[in-house]
């Protein structure tokens, strides 16, 4: 009886150790990787894939593109860009960091973290910069 009890808790203990080790391994791997190393992970990118059209922006000085195309492979590109216009996001990479953060590479190659929020029907997304300025896009049909 005692042996069975000890064995049961020993197995449970081992399971906990294994789970903790697995969690640690995943976290450690993520921490050691540069954001771009984990690019193109299929997780979480689906809602953003497609063409987005700017609806509004509280921060006109940042030159956010009017039309953005997020590709499935972790790349994005501003489209229909007028020749004389500078966009802070012209072409580069994107990567989700959790459900509410996105890393976007900017025109000078800096990777910047933004807040991101999708509407319930995933047709509207709002991106918030470090200064809390918001830019809203709706998905192109």
């Amino acid at each position: 009886m005692l042996n069975r009890f000890v064995l049961k808790y020993f197995v449970l203990f081992i399971k906990i150790i294994v789970i903790l080790f697995a969690v640690y391994s995943c976290t450690a791997n993520q921490n050691n990787k540069h954001p771009k190393d984990i690019l193109m992970s299929p997780v979480q990118i689906k809602p953003i894939v497609g063409v987005w059209i700017k609806s509004s922006s509280e921060s006109s000085e940042h030159n956010y593109p009017d039309k953005l195309f997020f590709k499935e492979n972790g790349l994005f590109q501003a489209i229909d860009k007028p020749e004389s216009t500078f966009y802070i996001w012209d072409v580069g990479t994107y990567e989700f960091k959790g459900k509410t953060k996105i890393l976007i590479s900017c025109a000078n190659d800096k990777i910047v973290a933004y807040g991101i929020k999708f509407s319930k029907n995933k047709q509207v997304m709002t991106i918030t910069d470090e200064q809390k300025c918001k830019v809203q896009y709706h998905k192109s049909e």
């Binding site: 540069h34 800096k110 990777i111």
Partner: peptide, 11 residues
């Protein structure tokens, strides 16, 4: 810190 390969940081 801010990118893997290179950056024109001076802006």
């Amino acid at each position: 810190d801010s990118t893997p390969r290179g950056i024109m940081y001076d802006n």
